[in-house]
Amino acid sequence: MRERLALSRPVGASSGKTGSWRTFRPVVDSEACNACGLCILYCPDAAISEDLEVDLDFCKGCGICANECPKKAIEMVREERD
């Protein structure tokens, strides 16, 4: 019998890919972006990388990044579902 312990190792996405919750997707306008990095720091899901790429597997589409962007370089676009 396999030993079962109440321990687990952290893995990315401990509750699955939460990107499926999203209704609006952040789209970064790289022309307007001045790479201040505020969106990286304010994302509750750590879904924006150092290179300002949004990880759509985990982004819940809350819109904090678009709201807080000082250059208004992020737009929330409605997701198209098939």
Partner: peptide, 12 residues
């Protein structure tokens, strides 16, 4: 603190 937790979108 990894992404993929089940907090609401925009959780403080």
């Amino acid at each position: 603190f990894d992404p993929g937790h089940r907090a609401c979108g925009g959780c403080g």
